[in-house]
């Protein structure tokens, strides 16, 4: 959303150089969501709306705690509820704060054709710059987490900014501020990773969650939002968190081999036609021979 003073290391649809390419910053930011201590109070949702200036959206009722099916263009942060029955028949309410994961390898940015519509800052934040967005929706296809959402009025796409405007002036994201249980943390990636691993270990050794672990998917080279899960072997249980997220193969094929093949073919085609003309020249009409038998 907002322009920050942070260095930019990646730009969507960009043909030239990138100001911060190759930059090595001391810290990469990270948000840690500990799903095991989330109580589903939705304070983070409200804080997000307040900070970003959106009003509360109408809720839906589907016989569960889920207030709306997924995030929206003007609702970037949503708790996903899942009433999960465990093997021993006991019940667990799994709650996960869903928002942009700020992938280290962002599929949205890879798919975007508009110069500067999506940027990645050196601190890891992936941010949409709506003034450059053309509303094609390719980012929706590129994202493995179902995050970018299209606003029909603006004809542009919006998503969580990781409070880039706050972070760039040294504040925590709004959601972190609001969380009453302290299940949300914000800091550098190594710090958050360590804290998450410590918590996961505690869950495994003390709380009896043998499969507890940290969700920082390597398929997108890690994310700048990480989760502690009771059952890291089945992330799908947490409101459809993908097990092995990666940029869709078709997007990679399209932006990789197909692009090279296509460019090569187009340039080769032009060269080939020019060669043909020089080698064989034009086709000229020939005079009709006077003895043409079928002459009419």
């Amino acid at each position: 959303m907002s322009q920050a003073s942070t260095e930019i290391i990646r730009i969507s649809g960009h043909a030239g150089s990138v100001p911060g390419a190759g930059l090595n910053r001391e810290f990469q930011v990270c948000k840690l969501v500990d799903t095991t201590t989330c109580i589903g109070c939705k304070a983070c949702e409200v804080a997000c709306l307040e900070w970003n200036g959106y009003t509360f959206s109408e809720t839906t009722f589907d016989n569960t705690y889920q207030t709306m099916p997924e995030t929206a263009w003007n609702y970037w942060n949503l708790i996903k509820f899942n009433e999960h029955e465990r093997a021993d028949g006991s019940m667990m309410l799994l709650m996960r704060k869903d928002q942009c994961m700020h992938c280290e390898d962002p599929g949205c940015l890879a798919a975007c054709p508009a110069d500067g519509a999506i940027v990645q800052y050196a601190n890891g934040i992936v941010d949409f710059q709506e003034q450059h967005c053309i509303g094609c929706g390719y980012c929706i296809t590129g994202c493995p987490f179902n995050i970018p959402k299209f606003s029909p009025e603006a004809r542009k796409v919006f998503k969580c900014t990781l409070c880039n405007d706050r972070v760039s002036v040294g504040l925590e994201p709004a959601c972190i501020k609001a969380c009453p249980t302290g299940c949300l943390h914000f800091g550098t990636k190594p710090e958050m990773k360590e804290l998450a691993e410590t918590r996961a270990e505690q869950l495994r050794n003390v709380s009896g969650f043998a499969d507890a672990g940290v969700y920082d998917p390597p398929g997108v080279s890690g994310t700048h939002v990480i989760y502690v899960l009771h059952d890291a072997k089945n992330p799908e249980l947490y409101g459809g968190l993908p097990k092995d997220p990666h940029i869709p193969y078709s997007v990679r094929l399209w932006k990789g081999p197909l692009k090279w093949l296509g460019n090569f073919a187009m340039i080769g085609g032009l060269v080939g036609l020019a060669w043909h003309y020089m080698r064989y020249g034009p086709k000229n009409e020939e005079p009709i021979p006077p003895d043409d038998r079928r002459r009419v």
Partner: peptide, 9 residues
């Protein structure tokens, strides 16, 4: 979403 993946290619 697979429809989108196919369409783009």
């Amino acid at each position: 979403r697979y429809v989108r993946y196919a369409a783009i290619l």
